[in-house]
Nucleic acid binder design. Sequence first.
DNA 1: TTGAAAGCGCTAACAG
DNA 2: CTGTTAGCGCTTTCAA
Lengths: 335, 335
Amino acid sequence: MSKKINIFDIATRAGVSIATVSRVINDSPLVKEETRQKVLFALKETNYTPNAIAKNLRIERSHTIGFISTGILMCFYNLISKGIEDIARSNKYNVFFCNSDDDPVKEKQYLTALSEKRVDGIILSPTGKNVKLIEDILSFGIPICLFDRSIDELHCDRVTVNNRDASCKAVRYMLDKGYRRIGFISGPVSRGTGKERYDGFVQAFRDAGIPMTEELVAYGNFTLESGVKCTEKLLSAGGFDVLYVANERMAVGALQCLSDRDIRIPRDTGFLMWDDPYWTTLLKPKLSAISQPVYTIGTTAADLIFKRILKGDSYIDKDPIRVTLDAKLIIRESL
Amino acid sequence: MSKKINIFDIATRAGVSIATVSRVINDSPLVKEETRQKVLFALKETNYTPNAIAKNLRIERSHTIGFISTGILMCFYNLISKGIEDIARSNKYNVFFCNSDDDPVKEKQYLTALSEKRVDGIILSPTGKNVKLIEDILSFGIPICLFDRSIDELHCDRVTVNNRDASCKAVRYMLDKGYRRIGFISGPVSRGTGKERYDGFVQAFRDAGIPMTEELVAYGNFTLESGVKCTEKLLSAGGFDVLYVANERMAVGALQCLSDRDIRIPRDTGFLMWDDPYWTTLLKPKLSAISQPVYTIGTTAADLIFKRILKGDSYIDKDPIRVTLDAKLIIRESL
DNA sequence: TTGAAAGCGCTAACAG
DNA sequence: CTGTTAGCGCTTTCAA
């Protein structure tokens, strides 16, 4: 590999100073056209590639943001990523995509790496731990925008979905339809989206004045495996006439389980799931689902981050902005 | 935001030189334990965050690689990404995930940005254009590993799948089963995976000594929409007794189209698709598919890149390594 | 309109 | 074992 060309080499070739080369590269207007041409020529001739690392060190800005999701495998994150990527691109930013796998240790490693790399902002779906570290990063001057899940004590931007409300409406819909044995595969209810969706479930029963059967709720952890297990549990607990699942991964597990036992939808049970991956309409019957505005979640989070980044330090202490988006119930054929 | 703490501040606090601080941070063995403790103390006290940008500038290595895929939306890329991320993490690297959308203009922008940011390597699914630029980057000293698609004239590592062979075997299987009107939704055949899968298709007929019907192949461009269109075309061209689709996106389109017209699998037609997203087993019947070792593609590409990165410049000129992985036919119920 | 020079924060000889 | 110092490649006053 040949010695890399730098701004000094260009300056020498063009017979100007490095300051002038820098000006040309950065489209400064205060360069005589003639001089500019000389520099441009030297630039082409050598196909010089500016060193962004040096530049970033100097201007103290990396033109990079970080994105930490809790699981790269979920379709759910694909469109969020795309939203973020699109907004970043339009701002001439690159993004570090990281995946914590919902593991606080990995999350910590990535948060640390990202702040050492001096990203200009971080979009994060938090595991719920590392709160102190996140606060440190914030006070270090790096804006953070939470999405999907949120952490109450954290004083930062966030974009979430009205989980509780959407869940409540969905359950009410089922109740209105006459379903009574609603089997619910819930996420963990200690906090976060799992809790909110659960709360909505409970609320709907309360609103309707119908007693809720505790045996009809099974608590999973949002993984495919737990979807299978919970379905089995509900089945052996007397079954249900509709199955309501709190996220996509568990829904896949549930669907597999039902299929293995030849329990048909909608003949033997209704079905409703959170998240609406593109394959829901490929199944027969087409699956009803609670659809989150995934692409918008991504673009919104990115917009919030760029608002902070572009406004500079003066904006850092501004109050957090909290955006709540609507998830909506899409009725197809499974219910 | 408070003034950032740097290595100099730590040195002052600990009453040592910046060189010593640097040594402690980098776990150099030649520091007296007592001194190390003093520095460590100052480090904790301030929660200092090393500036990786400055470090990278100095050591001329960014501990970052770039990944450019041609479409973030495909399930196909999810596991590839995961493979890359896993390997990168184990090497303490971060990765810029970029998405060209198969657009040469975006690809060019990203390639340029990545080389300016001095990534230590790039994993790329090429659009096929920008060959000159890719060569420049290579000769600039940044290793590149192509995956999925390859470009013959490029002298660099690549990991691909035996598209032609797998396609040929799959078609032979169908022929052996007695299918004769095999409708084929092909990708573009000018080059790349599209061409290879098409070639395999042709070959199988030739091997079997069975004449191939040109009206039974429709040429799409790997998008969902083209999957729909091609299916319609084949249907109006007299139909087929099995439908063979060259990638996932087009398969989704085809499936939607068949479903809309109430053409059932396998009652009315057989079905075989390239790629094996996790939902294939959720459908009834379970879909037969040609499965690519996606996770392995990711880890292999990343391993190749890290081999070059870690061996340093001396390795740069070594001959390209070309890995070909097997895609395998998985027979389920649709065929 | 241009150039000289001072760093950005860090690492790595080199000298002690 | 520790400190001094010279850069890495770039931007940005400040002067000319």
